[in-house]
């Protein structure tokens, strides 16, 4: 029972190992500063399919195939796939893995899904319920625009606080033992709602949730910002970054020198017209699977706290006048 620390954290006594990770991204991400870190860059957003949704399913399928290949395993070795995405009924995940015939646990945490699926996968592996588990997620700009905002060809202006949904999928192969970075702690976030109703300012929605999870992680683990080489959030963007650092300072934590946001890293905002930054499940997923884990392998960072952030946006509740709740899950990854 003593694996559970404080309010929200779990400590893994036999930390699950990240055997391999894979990332696949869309053309715009492939023109961004992290391009060289991704396994595959697709040439057009439709990816040879007839609909955006099919294209996103194919992204997940390919990311999974790749991660199994990189881990030197076969699909029969995989005991569970934990996956989720932004689409209704997790369309991308369910259709993407339909041919794999592997037990599937679907998760939804909006853009926090990568940390959520990784947390569930780590619990399963460390609990001894399975030796090999894959955690994955995806997002697609065109699908997300269609479902949450407006048709793609509708002419209008995006406010500077808005973010750009990343087209991409990341997958992580977890194992009981082996070579690779380990998941040592997870801190599961709670719903945090600071009464923001602006769907074009997701950074503001998610920053309080990120702050809450980071603070609780520090309290539960008796660690602080000095312990980590890198504290990285999923997709707060420029606006959310400023708010997060501000809130944490009010709690006397100054993470500025250790801090990075996947949404800010993945695009060159001024050149690529992405305003506040990248967003979506895929944003944190491909940045973790592509950039962060590969740099950890090279030794740039040893102790990383990955905090994926999600805005639980629903068109229905928003139109009924509700605010947008936020959530953030943290996963401590250490070499």
């Amino acid at each position: 029972m003593n694996k559970h620390l404080g309010k929200q954290t779990i400590r893994f006594d036999n930390p699950p190992v990240i055997l391999a990770s894979s990332s696949i991204v869309g053309p715009r991400e492939g023109e961004g500063p992290l391009a060289t870190y991704f396994d595959t860059i697709i040439e057009d957003e439709l990816y040879g399919e007839s609909t955006w949704e099919k294209a996103e399913s194919k992204l997940i399928e390919k990311a999974l195939e790749k991660v199994i290949e990189k881990a030197n395993k076969t699909i029969d070795d995989v005991k569970y796939i934990i996956s989720g995405d932004l689409l209704n009924q997790l369309t991308a995940s369910t259709f993407g893995i339909r041919n794999f015939k592997v037990p599937f646990i679907g998760v939804y945490g909006a853009c926090s899904t990568m940390a959520e699926s990784l947390s569930v996968a780590a619990i399963i592996v460390e609990g001894g319920f399975a030796d090999y588990v894959i955690a994955s997620t995806s997002s697609h700009f065109c699908c997300a625009e269609k479902q949450f905002r407006s048709p793609l060809e509708l002419g209008g202006q995006r406010p500077l606080t808005s973010t750009w949904t990343v087209t991409g999928s990341g997958a992580i192969f977890l194992a009981e033992s082996g070579e690779g970075p380990k998941i040592t702690y997870i801190t599961t976030g709670k719903i945090v709602d600071f009464n923001i109703k602006d769907a074009m300012n997701m950074g503001a929605v998610m920053a309080p949730a990120a702050a809450d999870t980071i603070i609780n992680h520090f309290i539960d683990t008796e660690r602080d910002e000095n312990y980590y080489d890198l504290i990285v959030t999923g997709d707060l963007g420029k606006v959310g970054k400023e708010l997060l650092l501000d809130i944490l300072k009010q709690y006397n934590y100054d993470i500025t020198s250790k801090y990075m946001d996947c949404g800010i890293e993945i695009f060159e905002a001024d050149k690529q017209d992405t305003h506040s930054g990248g967003s979506g499940c895929g944003c944190g997923a491909v940045t973790l699977a592509g950039y962060i884990l590969s740099e950890m392998g090279k030794g740039k960072w040893k102790k990383v706290l990955f905090v994926a952030t999600g805005a639980m946006l629903s068109q229905v509740s928003l139109q009924q006048g509700e605010s947008i709740p936020g959530i953030a899950h943290a996963v401590a990854i250490e070499n």
């Binding site: 500077l160 606080t161 300012n201 950074g203 503001a204 606006v239 400023e242 708010l243 501000d246 809130i247």
Partner: peptide, 10 residues
């Protein structure tokens, strides 16, 4: 928070 958001949002 509303004021903080307004300040942070370009």
């Amino acid at each position: 928070y509303k004021e903080m958001v307004e300040k942070a949002s370009p």
